[in-house]
Lab assay of single mutants.
Amino acid sequence: MSSSSWLLLSLVAVTAAQSTIEEQAKTFLDKFNHEAEDLFYQSSLASWNYNTNITEENVQNMNNAGDKWSAFLKEQSTLAQMYPLQEIQNLTVKLQLQALQQNGSSVLSEDKSKRLNTILNTMSTIYSTGKVCNPDNPQECLLLEPGLNEIMANSLDYNERLWAWESWRSEVGKQLRPLYEEYVVLKNEMARANHYEDYGDYWRGDYEVNGVDGYDYSRGQLIEDVEHTFEEIKPLYEHLHAYVRAKLMNAYPSYISPIGCLPAHLLGDMWGRFWTNLYSLTVPFGQKPNIDVTDAMVDQAWDAQRIFKEAEKFFVSVGLPNMTQGFWENSMLTDPGNVQKAVCHPTAWDLGKGDFRILMCTKVTMDDFLTAHHEMGHIQYDMAYAAQPFLLRNGANEGFHEAVGEIMSLSAATPKHLKSIGLLSPDFQEDNETEINFLLKQALTIVGTLPFTYMLEKWRWMVFKGEIPKDQWMKKWWEMKREIVGVVEPVPHDETYCDPASLFHVSNDYSF
């Protein structure tokens, strides 16, 4: 037999072997998808029940369902290793196997995995149920939502704001400190077992692309791009910072340095994350009609249902689908009040099986009107990829998912749209002054938050990498806050605090 014939037969044999492996992989994935749908849905439903009704029974049910899901994933991840990716030609099959071969938290021992889940659930519970009591009246206690958040959004009393700011960190942050220390250790162990340098590197892996249509993007490039983007917006932020400082000097004349940092408790919310609520103090042309339409919403008797129905109309107007019937029947759109304790931070849920929901303790404000559009943007994205195989139902990356939500809320905030839905009067006219007011309001929300987020994530990356010793977490946190964000702590904090974890995203294990 000629050498060319042998070569042809060899190629046929290799192709047949690849085809056999690929067919086996497809069969394996079909079985996995069928089983995963049910187990993931049960786990998601148990998590939803806990988040909307925080009880010991629900946390136990959530843990049990989560353990079943984790055990299943660990088993299936091991089985998926049997299919070598280099022998799979079908890109859809390869991407699913690649996702499943990534072990995630299931790489930890059973004891450590359970401990990590306990830590995460405990931190979430402390954050959502933590109360601050009035020292003069111990029976008068406030949760973060709505009590403390209400103070931080609306109060102009310097000392009341300081009390709310400090009490939240003292009551909740200190409880979270030992848990967060354990969390860092276990998450790093999980990341390294998955061949990442640390948990920050694991997060950045979400943005990594290897040879898809000839395109590559590394975790290191992400760090470079983040640094570059921050340097680009820094001059604009510094101008905004100086303008806000001048306006705060008028409101709090004896508390603000004309050349120094801004006190952290005066920036519009509990964390200084969004400066939106400073608009009334900083509006350049106050004689113009108010483009913050909160009062109009209240006057027109809007409620949470109306807010979300208007958001749905907005999405339908640009060619996107209505929310499902189940969305309206199962979402929690208002604070249950004293009936039950719930996690009030707005979140969009894709539970699986076409079950999409939003959890939000909606208030009738323009801020929540825009947040509703943001969260519904997440749901629209979830619905758009719902037909994909189970392992591919995700956003391109976390940042893109947020961008989908944010672009919709930005569009909904324009005076033209607000006028079209009757929240600005029919005779409202846009001119240079109203446009400047609008742009300032947008800058308070968007530009003001960028250094906050950059600095927070930089601190977390450094902590996970071990570049900040545990006994210097708070020292470095406030050094970076002053240097990068231009914000100063109103009272000193020692290493018993854990100020970063006083933010939902940190205590609940979300990256930005």
Results as ranks from 00 to 15, higher is better:
Ser19Lys: 11
Ser19Tyr: 04
Ser19His: 06
Thr20Asp: 10
Thr20Leu: 11
Thr20Tyr: 13
Ile21Arg: 13
Ile21Phe: 12
Gln24Gly: 15
Gln24Cys: 15
Ala25Trp: 14
Ala25Val: 00
Lys26Cys: 06
Lys26Ile: 00
Phe28Lys: 14
Phe28Glu: 15
Phe28Asn: 14
Leu29Asn: 13
Leu29Tyr: 05
Lys31Val: 14
Asn33Gly: 11
Asn33Arg: 14
His34Arg: 14
His34Met: 12
Glu37Val: 13
Glu37Ser: 13
Asp38Leu: 14
Asp38Ser: 14
Leu39Glu: 02
Leu39Lys: 00
Phe40Lys: 00
Phe40Cys: 03
Phe40Gln: 05
Tyr41Ala: 15
Tyr41Gly: 15
Gln42Tyr: 14
Gln42Glu: 15
Leu45Phe: 10
Leu45Cys: 14
Leu45Ser: 13
Ala46His: 10
Trp48Thr: 10
Trp48Ala: 11
Trp48Glu: 08
Asn49Ala: 00
Asn49Ile: 11
Asn49Glu: 00
Asn49Cys: 00
Tyr50Leu: 09
Asn51Phe: 02
Asn51Pro: 14
Ile54Thr: 10
Glu56Asp: 05
Glu57Trp: 10
Glu57Arg: 08
Glu57Lys: 10
Glu57Val: 04
Glu57Gly: 07
Val59Trp: 05
Val59Ala: 08
Gln60Val: 05
Gln60Phe: 06
Gln60Glu: 04
Gln60Trp: 09
Asn61His: 05
Asn61Tyr: 07
Met62Gln: 09
Met62Ser: 10
Asn63Val: 04
Asn63Ala: 08
Asn64Lys: 07
Asn64Arg: 01
Asn64Ser: 08
Asn64Ala: 04
Asn64Gln: 07
Ala65Gln: 03
Ala65Ser: 12
Ala65Arg: 00
Asp67Ala: 03
Asp67Gln: 01
Lys68His: 07
Lys68Pro: 14
Trp69Phe: 09
Trp69Gly: 09
Ala71Lys: 01
Ala71Cys: 02
Leu73Thr: 09
Leu73Gln: 09
Leu73Met: 09
Lys74Trp: 06
Lys74Asp: 07
Lys74Gln: 08
Glu75Gly: 00
Glu75Tyr: 00
Met82Val: 15
Met82Asp: 15
Met82Arg: 03
Met82Ala: 14
Tyr83Leu: 02
Tyr83Thr: 14
Pro84Gly: 10
Pro84His: 12
Pro84Met: 11
Gln89Tyr: 02
Gln89Ala: 02
Asn90Leu: 00
Asn90Pro: 00
Asn90Phe: 00
Asn90Glu: 00
Asn90Cys: 00
Leu91Trp: 02
Leu91Pro: 01
Thr92Val: 00
Thr92Ile: 01
Thr92Phe: 00
Thr92Pro: 00
Thr92Lys: 02
Thr92Glu: 00
Val93Met: 13
Leu95Val: 07
Gln96Phe: 13
Gln96Asp: 12
Gln98Thr: 01
Gln102Asn: 02
Gln102Gly: 05
Gln102Ile: 01
Gln102Val: 02
